[in-house]
Amino acid sequence: MSGRPSTATGDATTAGGDATTEADPAAAAAFTVAGRALGSRLVLGTGGIASLEVLDAVVEASGSSLATVALRRVDAAGRGGILDVLRARGVAVLPNTAGCFTAAEAVLTAKLAREAFDTDWVKLEVIGDEDTLLPDAVELLDAAEQLCDQGFVVLPYTTDDPVLARRLEQVGCAAVMPLGSPIGSGLGIRNPHNIALIAERSSVPVVLDAGIGTASDATLAMELGCAAVMVATAITRSRQPVRMAGAFRAAVEAGWQARRAGRIPRRYLARASSPVEGMPEL
């Protein structure tokens, strides 16, 4: 019997480049996607941010090294300034394909993003329903395959379906980003079992995306074995986004450490934590 309790989802590894070597904390701390080490396991979504000034402060407080942007028409409102903020903070840009409903739209958007931002990375979103914003599995897989074949580093936003996650990995995705619950809903992780399954069985990093409501949801995601967490709305639309960004930074770190430390097994009945021997006769 090892002194280390096993967990329902196993322990040692989660995702590509993520093998935990407890003797080497530095290696264990690296979050690597497609061979690129990212300094933080908190991926920041910029959607809903109130201003570029708030964004700058949120980026700093979050410690994030990767942030998403959307691609939209140039207009007189001065779009584009967001890039300057991210670059000045040394944050890598992860363009998304938000708003795309077909593989064709998503592929063209990814190509435009590559041209605009000089990056092969894309957070692939292909939405199937306007009310829930849930992914369209068929279009998503089609777009993922096309983009992988064209040399993109594809991080697909997907349902919490372990089989679809595996299919996305098989067509060459560099990570998978299963949802906790619908985008912007704040409902947290509705199916922790599926997230744990995906994390356990995936050989690419698993980034929990969408549905996070507050910091403890991010901790849970990490405890379930995710390699990172992506958060937008829960930070940007909170009452104090900068404070919340700091809370998420701590929450992701706490979940990561707790996962590595190994939770105790669940028991139906109590197990005394004080010694039973040596009780005085009273």
Partner: peptide, 10 residues
């Protein structure tokens, strides 16, 4: 023609 750039999102 569509001319696009970065906007907050995702």
């Amino acid at each position: 023609v569509e001319i696009v750039t970065a906007a907050a999102g995702g």
